[in-house]
Amino acid sequence: MILIIDDDPEFTRSLKLHLEEHNFIVVTFGNSWQSLNFLEKQIPALIILDILLPEIDGYDFLKFLRENKKFYYIPVIVLTAKSLVKDRIKAYSLGCNAYLSKPFSMEELLSITSNLIAQSQNYLYDFYSYSNYSKSPAKQTILPHPLSNSFELTCKEQKALNLVIEGYMNKEIARNLNVSHRHVEKYISRLFNKFNVSNRTELVRIALNNFYSTN
């Protein structure tokens, strides 16, 4: 089940319908207080969270989740009109799993949603398997580990990384860098290899956590 927290009823209704068309069960609330009351009764597989919320904003809500042992492992996608790099950095520093700015690609959201739910289920399976094996399990986290070694990026790789962090897709990156789509794919592939990740979400988070953004 997916929990959407957004105070725009028209947008929420449209997003709910799209997700339900792909066989997701969706619950929606327009503010954080209602969502917190719901979380006391039921835990969603994933939360889609707006930042600009009344009373308790998305940042404070995210901080609450990550500081609460009952909720800290729930994957969170921030989906908001706030598109500045500083907003992304703040959200990632508070523990969001992905950050998309409106307008966004529904295909990308569906891909991230499916991947995060699958990763979360694997994490919980591993956690409880280990807990059953050991009475004093080590603390675990769903956040990526810091890089063990620093490395240099080429000028083009750095520019491509900065644009990925800002939420640009490959076609937009190619236009900004005045290169072909194939060249962008090569840059992104090299970045995946250097940062030892398999998707853009992990790339952005680890790059920000290790101060590789030059924006």
Rank of each mutant, 00 (worst) to 15 (best):
3 L>H: 09
5 I>D: 01
6 D>E: 13
6 D>T: 12
7 D>P: 02
7 D>A: 05
9 P>C: 08
14 S>D: 09
15 L>A: 06
16 K>P: 01
19 L>C: 06
22 H>E: 14
23 N>P: 00
25 I>Y: 02
25 I>R: 10
30 G>I: 01
32 S>N: 10
32 S>V: 15
33 W>E: 14
37 N>I: 07
39 L>I: 01
39 L>H: 04
41 K>E: 15
43 I>C: 06
45 A>C: 09
62 L>A: 04
63 K>V: 00
65 L>K: 08
65 L>Q: 05
66 R>F: 08
66 R>G: 08
67 E>K: 01
68 N>E: 07
69 K>F: 02
69 K>D: 15
70 K>T: 09
82 K>T: 05
83 S>E: 11
83 S>A: 11
84 L>N: 15
85 V>A: 14
86 K>N: 12
88 R>C: 13
89 I>P: 05
90 K>N: 12
90 K>Y: 02
91 A>G: 06
91 A>V: 12
92 Y>E: 00
92 Y>P: 00
93 S>I: 00
95 G>P: 02
97 N>D: 15
97 N>S: 14
97 N>G: 14
99 Y>A: 10
100 L>Y: 10
100 L>K: 11
101 S>I: 03
101 S>L: 09
102 K>C: 05
103 P>I: 09
104 F>A: 10
106 M>W: 06
106 M>H: 05
107 E>P: 04
108 E>F: 07
110 L>M: 12
111 S>C: 12
115 N>S: 12
117 I>R: 04
122 N>T: 10
123 Y>V: 06
124 L>A: 07
127 F>V: 11
128 Y>M: 00
128 Y>N: 10
130 Y>H: 08
132 N>H: 04
134 S>E: 11
136 S>M: 08
137 P>R: 13
137 P>S: 10
137 P>N: 01
138 A>E: 14
139 K>N: 13
142 I>F: 11
144 P>I: 06
145 H>M: 04
148 S>P: 00
148 S>I: 05
150 S>W: 04
150 S>Q: 12
150 S>I: 02
151 F>N: 02
151 F>I: 07
152 E>W: 05
154 T>D: 12
156 K>I: 07
157 E>P: 01
159 K>W: 07
161 L>T: 06
163 L>Q: 13
165 I>C: 13
165 I>S: 02
167 G>F: 03
171 K>D: 08
172 E>R: 08
172 E>C: 04
172 E>G: 03
174 A>K: 06
177 L>H: 05
177 L>D: 02
181 H>F: 12
183 H>D: 03
183 H>S: 11
184 V>G: 02
184 V>N: 05
185 E>F: 01
185 E>G: 15
185 E>Q: 14
186 K>H: 09
188 I>V: 11
189 S>Y: 00
190 R>C: 07
191 L>A: 01
192 F>M: 05
194 K>Q: 07
195 F>T: 03
196 N>T: 06
196 N>R: 14
199 N>R: 02
202 E>D: 11
204 V>F: 08
204 V>S: 04
206 I>L: 13
206 I>C: 10
208 L>H: 00
208 L>K: 03
210 N>A: 04
211 F>G: 05
211 F>E: 14
212 Y>G: 04
212 Y>I: 04
212 Y>T: 00
212 Y>M: 05
212 Y>R: 07
213 S>H: 14
213 S>P: 00
